[in-house]
Design a protein around this nucleic acid. Structure first.
Length: 472
RNA sequence: GGCGAGUUGGCGGAGUGGUUACGCAGCGGAUUGCAAAUCCGUGUACAGGAGUUCGAUUCUCCUACUCGCCUCCA
């Protein structure tokens, strides 16, 4: 199957041709670890998780190398340490685990390699020294700066020119910079900040310091993926300056670097940028604790194409929940097929192979495969949905987070009570008690389903057990 | 100021140079004590203007508007 991917570098969809036949490699910029991942952080994770799944399917799991870094040295982390008084390593270790836990709940597979920046200081320094030696970087006042003018294609990825940007005047001017656009490869650290012996310039170390932000990705990609690799991904806010700088560094160091550049669009919340000042900022964990299953978050994310802004809305959350519940119901009792014993149907594969058209894939599942429960289950699992855990928790997931473990029992007893009242009513023709119970349940966020001989109560995500106290 | 993306029916959201997805909501019906859930059926659309074309929602240009990035932020 031909896979087509949109390459930011050429601004068009291209047929993906891996460097080495039958193998694929990709590098995705990971998080800076100082606090819980917000919902926006989840988007690239899920987008590239889908790409990873597609590539694994196409080339075999053993033939895909997926590197995603953790930035564990950064001024935001230092600031967090200073304000909390906690050791930096404690903060970064904790945040990394949070990140893995949260993304795991969204059904994201772990990359094959998850390097931490602090483990690659030596390669970064070597690269910086090499750049200085080749005349692309210079030392000044304890800093090492990259000489942007020395890379002729600077700005090509993001479609900017150095002169225009300087005219736009939104660049940090610092006395030690030869040119306002030059960016930091290395900067000095005071004693209270993390630091390492710096690059050697003119025979002696420039002094204790820490790397600038951009160099880590260039160094780690080179160490783990080599001179050239297939795909480099990240959010489109990274296109400039981060990725532009990565390219400049790597190219000037003589590396070929990435062939295909992929960028996901940003996430919004109810039509607006998610930001703390607007009060619409929340983390993945916030949502999970609020009773939104990870599957629902994943579904909503996959329902918008990755190159379009993704608007997280309450309505979408509800629709996703509803659709997933339908799928859960349809596939109840079925066992997923062994991955080796079923093949992905062409329409699904074609959708994903066309620049990751996940929305189309979901549409195919919902409109066509819903008539074939086994196929629905198998294909949904390929997309990372309908996992064992999610199916198991299908009826209780919302309850657990909302009201502790006892809620499902509570609903079971209420269902029995309602069923009893209904049997009486069928004989007496007086349905007032049944209607009263039903009304209370609906008001408390419970969906009431009565078939001819059965009563089922299903908690929705707005279920509020406290409203049912009077019925106990 | 620079760069980029986008504007599709009530809403979400694909896609295509000619036959107009899909989901949700709505409406009609089946079912139900009434509902819910489920099933069946059903309507409405391609921001505005100009151009290319036998023909454009789909290509080109212009205008308007929206959003994002350029600043720590995926």
């Amino acid at each position: 199957m031909t896979i087509k991917l949109y390459n930011t570098k050429t601004r068009q969809k291209e047929v993906f041709k891996p460097l080495v036949d039958g193998k694929a490699s990709m590098y995705v910029c990971g998080p800076t670890v100082y606090e819980r991942a917000h919902l926006g952080n989840a988007r690239p994770v899920l987008v590239f998780d889908m790409l990873y799944r597609l590539l694994r399917h196409e080339y075999g799991a053993k033939n895909v190398k997926y590197v995603r870094n953790f930035t564990d040295v950064d001024d935001k982390i230092n600031a967090r340490a200073a304000e909390t008084g906690r050791p930096i390593s404690e903060i970064t270790d904790e945040t990394i685990q949070w990140f893995l836990d949260d993304m795991g709940e969204l059904g994201a597979l772990e990359p094959t390699d998850m390097p931490r920046a602090t483990q690659y200081i030596a390669p970064m320094i070597a690269m910086i020294e090499d750049l200085i030696a080749k005349g692309h970087a210079y030392a000044a006042e304890g800093h090492v700066l990259f000489k942007v003018r020395s890379y002729k294609d600077y700005g090509k990825l993001s479609g900017r020119s150095v002169d225009d940007m300087i005219a736009g005047a939104r660049v940090e001017v610092a006395p030690y910079k030869e040119d306002p656009m030059d960016f930091v490869l290395w900067k000095p650290s005071s004693d209270d900040l993390p630091g390492w012996d710096g690059p050697v310039v003119g025979g002696k170390s420039i002094g204790r310091g820490r790397p600038g932000w951009h160099i880590e990705c260039s160094a780690m990609a080179y160490e783990l993926l080599g001179d050239t690799f297939d795909i480099h991904g990240g959010g489109n806010d990274l296109t400039f300056p981060h990725h532009e700088n990565e390219i400049a560094q790597s190219k000037c160091a003589g590396h070929n670097f990435a062939n295909v550049w992929m960028h996901n669009e940003m996430l919004q919340v109810e039509g607006k940028k998610m930001s703390k000042s607007l009060g619409n900022f929340f983390t993945v964990r916030d949502l999970l604790e609020d009773g939104v299953p990870g599957e629902v978050i994943r579904f909503v994310m996959l329902s918008t194409h990755y190159r379009k802004p993704m608007d997280w809305t309450e309505k979408k959350r509800q629709e996703a929940e509803k659709t997933l519940r339908k799928w859960m119901d349809i596939t109840t009792g079925l066992e997923p097929s062994e991955p080796s014993s079923f093949s992905i149907r062409p329409p699904l594969k074609m959708a994903l192979s066309d620049d990751l058209n996940t929305h189309k894939a979901l549409t195919y599942l919902n409109s066509t495969l819903s008539a074939d429960p086994q196929a629905l289950l198998d294909h949904a699992r390929f997309l990372g949905l309908l996992s064992d855990e999610a199916r198991e928790q299908h009826n209780t997931a919302y309850l657990k987070s909302r009201a502790g473990g006892g809620s499902s029992e509570m609903l079971a007893s209420l269902a029995a009570k309602l069923d009893g009242a209904r049997r009486h009513a069928k004989a007496s023709k007086d349905y007032s008690e049944v209607d009263r119970l039903k009304k209370l349940l609906v008001e408390a966020g419970v969906e009431v389903q009565m078939s001819s001989d059965n009563v089922a109560l299903i908690a929705t995500s707005s279920f509020d057990p406290s409203k049912l106290e009077s019925l106990k």
